[in-house]
Design a protein around this nucleic acid. Structure first.
Length: 409
RNA sequence: CGGGAGGUGGCGCAGCUCGGAUUAGCGCACUUGCAUGGGGUGCAAGGGGCCGUGGGUUCAAAUCCCACUCUCCCGACCA
């Protein structure tokens, strides 16, 4: 893709509205547009990253047999009254009336709605177990949105719900999702930990949180300086007896064994193999998709800009072209790389070399290719690894082979 | 919702203390031309602003006073 034809706009200076690293860089690099506090639009670069994350999530959810759906964002308030959560979540709900004077809210979460769907469409144990998930925008009227996408009023969440006939089934699905979550966060390049957590207003009897250490984290754990293990309470490390230090953590995922809290309240029953009418045993599994995006940005940057891990970066490669006469050759190289499944952003703009280099650093694609004088002289293409800022020189054929290997790992 | 800081062309800022000659300024970005072309390049000429909103005070307000609003930070809150 040609930079000159793309809707990418970068800014030289940090925006004043941003304080934390990820917020600054995502705005400066033109990944996001800030509409208002806690409200953001995704521009092409940001949307590409978001979709990469979505696809990683889909891959791992589907591999566990979960099926993707998309529920409504508009929800009549009645379904919330059955569980009483219209009151529990009253503060964060965006609520209003439609023209028929009916109470409606923009869904802050979807336990009630999925339970309604299952209540009316599943009546036998033979249809179980089942896991459904969606990737959707949630709406919460946050008292204090902050840190850019980290805590916003409109954000994207992947929420999954499991339905089982008994607790053994729930345990199995919970374990499956646990594993899927580990795979998802790993593939997103996140250094995460999982820890048993409180269920809070979600109810249920067991939950685990997935967290990433980061300055903008709103959760606090305690870390052993010696063995690097994390603990919920301040004390001393049970293993090495070292004093623990505070560690701010960004919550990126949370899974819950809900049991029958929602199915009972909403009278979602099925007949089991003994002909007995019992409530579904439920689990729910959430990932903050937009929060993953900002968490990755938060923990992967340097003084020059973002450093996206492979697999989530907007493009696999930035190709800086420093002489217009080389552009046809650059397009040929792009075609060859795309043939290997790699995406390329060709910087063909009429800009000074420094501008192009600095923008390439700011955008943070994992590899930066340079075609300029050396290429004109003897066909040499320089490759710079964004993360380490180290360079290697290649001829075209070797370069393609090198990149192919890098991306197959 | 408490506490703090701040709103001046698209972005980043100066001007405000001590109201008036500054035609509201600077850097970046933008437009045009020439030069340049491996690290935010040089020169020249341009376009773009009801100084967050509303009300006061005054002969005169970006500047002083009041109210509101928006943004950021700390806290409370956070399925």
């Amino acid at each position: 893709m040609l930079f000159s034809k793309s809707f990418i706009f970068t800014q030289r200076e940090d925006p004043k509205v941003a304080e934390c690293k990820s917020h600054k860089l995502l705005l400066r690099g033109g990944f996001l547009f800030m509409v208002s506090s806690g409200i953001y639009s995704y521009l092409p670069l940001g949307y590409r990253v978001l979709n990469n994350i979505n696809n990683i999530i889909r891959k791992h959810m589907n591999s566990k047999g979960a099926q993707e759906i998309l529920m409504s964002a508009l929800q009549p308030i009645e379904i919330w009254q059955k569980t009483g959560r219209d009151k529990d979540l009253a503060e964060v709900m965006f609520r209003f009336k439609d023209r028929k004077d009916r109470d409606i809210c923009l869904g802050p979460t979807h336990e009630e709605e999925i339970t309604e769907i299952i209540r009316r469409s599943v009546s036998s144990y033979k249809q179980l177990p089942m896991i459904l998930y969606q990737i959707q925008t949630k709406f919460r009227d946050e008292p204090r949105p902050r840190f850019g996408l980290m805590r916003s009023c409109e954000f994207i969440m992947k929420d999954a719900y499991s339905f089982d006939k008994d607790n053994q089934g729930l345990d199995q699905n919970y374990e499956k999702m646990f594993q899927a979550y580990k795979d998802i966060f790993s593939e997103c390049g996140l250094d995460f930990i999982d820890i048993e957590a409180d269920s809070g207003a979600m109810g249920g009897n067991l939950s685990h949180e997935f967290m990433v250490p980061g300055d903008t984290g709103e959760d606090l754990l305690f870390k052993c300086s010696d063995c690097a293990k994390y603990f919920k309470n301040e004390g001393q490390c049970p293993d090495c007896k070292k004093k623990l230090e505070e560690a701010k953590m960004i919550e990126v995922g949370h899974i819950f064994k809900l049991g029958t809290k929602y199915s009972k309240a909403q009278e979602a029953f099925f007949l089991n193999e003994f002909g007995k009418r019992i409530p579904f045993i439920m689990g729910c599994y959430g990932i903050g998709v937009s929060r993953i995006l900002s968490a990755i940005a938060e923990v992967n940057s340097d003084e020059k800009g973002l450093v996206w891990p492979k697999g989530v970066s907007p493009f696999d490669l930035s190709l800086v072209v420093l002489d217009d006469t080389i552009l046809p050759k650059a397009l040929e190289l792009e075609e060859a790389l795309e043939g290997e499944g790699l995406s390329v952003l060709i910087d063909d703009r009429q800009e000074a070399a420094g501008v192009k280099f600095n923008d390439a650093y700011l955008l943070g694609n994992p590899y930066i290719l340079i075609m300029g004088k050396k290429y004109l002289k003897d066909g040499t293409i320089d490759l710079e690894i964004r993360k380490t800022r180290t360079s290697k020189s290649f001829k075209k054929g070797d370069l393609i082979k090198f990149l192919k290997d890098e991306y197959s790992r």
